[in-house]
């Protein structure tokens, strides 16, 4: 379960801020958050995964208060909008990254994720040699390799064409179910929200309300 209680945050140097934002997403739920550009959806995801510290409020993951925990201790997978693949690293090394950071070696997990996401043939390629859809699958595999309980997706389908988007939506649904993930997916698209969201939310005037 993801639970945000009265989160407030102010961006350094600019006027933008979030005030008293609260949100609850039950475990194993695919939640979709919609909202206009610049309303703070990405900032909210970054606060959730620990990249921004809220000035007030608390964050709970499965009843554990993670507000002051480092990002690496939260077990949250994060796929940003630009995917942020590591430049100059082979696909297999991108997926291996979280294992490497923990001093683990699990080639089976890498192979299994590559099979699940249909990227086995891409393992020896660099990010520059991938299409938009392929990059997205690699970013998902990299996030899932850390075996997170929660997956945060920031407009993951925005750069894909119509047919790739359909495939990607099917993939996201099956991954959520297979890995028993609680997913928070941020999007502009109502059709995406309707197709994927078991729980649909809307960021409106600084508050998260049912969409």
């Amino acid at each position: 379960m993801i639970s945000l209680k009265n989160i407030s945050w102010k961006a350094a140097g600019v006027g933008f801020s979030l005030q008293n934002v609260s949100l609850t997403i039950p475990s194993n739920t695919y939640a979709v958050l919609m909202g206009s550009t610049g309303c703070g959806k990405t900032s909210l995801l970054e606060i959730l995964c620990g990249l921004r510290q809220p000035s007030e409020g608390q964050i709970f993951l499965d009843d554990r208060n993670v507000t002051r925990l480092e990002p690496r201790d939260r077990r949250i997978g994060y796929v940003p909008q630009d995917l942020a693949l590591f430049p100059g690293r082979l696909v297999k090394d991108q997926i291996r990254f979280s294992l490497q950071m923990r001093g683990l070696q699990d080639n089976d997990l890498i192979q299994r994720l590559a099979d699940d996401l249909g990227i086995t043939h891409l393992l020896d390629r660099l990010p520059d040699q991938l299409s938009g859809g392929e990059k997205q699958r690699v970013a998902l595999a990299r996030a899932l390799a850390a075996q997170p309980r929660v997956l945060l997706l920031d407009e993951p389908l925005s750069a894909l064409d119509e047919s790739t988007r359909e495939d990607a939506m099917t993939l996201l649904r099956s991954l959520q179910s297979k890995h028993s993930l609680t997913v928070l997916h941020v999007t502009h698209s109502r059709s995406e929200a309707e197709a994927l969201g078991q729980l649909r939310l809307r960021f409106d005037q600084g508050q998260v309300i049912p969409g």
Binding site: E46, C49, G50, L51, E70, P71, R72, R74, I76, G77, Y78, P80, D82, A84, L85, F86, P87, G88, R89, F97, S98, Q100, M101, R102, R142, A143, A145, A146
Partner: peptide, 23 residues
Amino acid sequence: RPEEVALTLGATRFQSFWHVALP
């Protein structure tokens, strides 16, 4: 952004600098 993603993947600040920013 890649350095921030590295933090969510289990890296410390130094590991993120060493393994992502430096290369």
